[in-house]
Amino acid sequence: MSGLQEWLYAVFVEQFDAWIVLGFFAQGCFTMRFLVQWIASERARRSVVPVAFWFFSLFGGALLFVYAIQRQDPVFIAGQGMGLFIYIRNIWLIASERKAALAETD
């Protein structure tokens, strides 16, 4: 085997376990937010950030945060951990806005 083949085998085969499955699932959820945002923007013909973007961000980011902790990667932990505050705050702001709008209609 060449050096590249050995590296690919070590990275993608030898260390494959349930945590890797969780990591790829989490990354898939996190990636869905971009797909949701892109589709919403294309339909509106302008840049749109739908609520689903923030929920996919929160869910995928939280799972990636757990994965990063298990892998003990400080850069990944810090990046995903800080993002969680932003996602939660945006969901909070959206909920507050909707609650205020409902109060106005009563």
Rank of each mutant, 00 (worst) to 15 (best):
R43W: 09
F76H: 10
L8A: 14
W7A: 14
A52H: 02
D17S: 12
A10W: 13
C29A: 10
A68I: 04
R71L: 15
G3W: 10
A26I: 05
W54G: 00
E14F: 06
W54T: 00
A40F: 01
L64S: 05
S47A: 14
A100P: 03
P74S: 08
G60Y: 06
C29W: 11
R45T: 09
V75Q: 13
I91C: 02
S2G: 15
I88T: 13
R98G: 05
D73S: 12
F16V: 05
A95D: 00
P74A: 15
G83V: 07
L35F: 14
V11C: 06
R45P: 05
F34S: 07
L8C: 06
G81S: 08
V75E: 08
F59R: 02
A78K: 02
S57N: 07
R89T: 08
F76T: 10
L93C: 05
L93D: 07
W7S: 10
T105R: 14
R33L: 10
P50W: 01
I94W: 09
Q72A: 14
R98I: 11
L84Q: 12
R43E: 12
F85W: 10
R71H: 08
V49C: 06
G60E: 01
L64Q: 10
S47C: 07
Q5V: 07
P50Y: 01
T31L: 11
L4R: 00
I77E: 09
W7M: 15
D17L: 11
A26L: 02
Q27R: 06
S47K: 08
V13P: 03
R89G: 09
V66G: 09
L35E: 03
F30Q: 07
Q15S: 15
A52V: 03
A52M: 02
I94V: 11
I86F: 11
G28S: 12
D106I: 12
I88Y: 04
F25Y: 10
E6F: 04
E97D: 11
F55C: 09
P50K: 00
W38A: 03
W19F: 12
L58E: 04
F12K: 00
A26C: 04
L8R: 04
R45N: 13
G81W: 12
W38C: 04
R45G: 12
D73I: 05
I88C: 09
A52D: 01
M1D: 10
R45D: 11
C29L: 15
E42S: 12
M82P: 04
N90P: 03
Q72T: 11
W7P: 01
Q15Y: 10
D106R: 14
Q80A: 08
E42F: 06
F76G: 05
P74R: 02
L35C: 01
I91Q: 01
F55I: 05
L22I: 13
E97V: 04
R43M: 08
F16I: 04
R98K: 11
F30S: 02
C29D: 04
L22D: 02
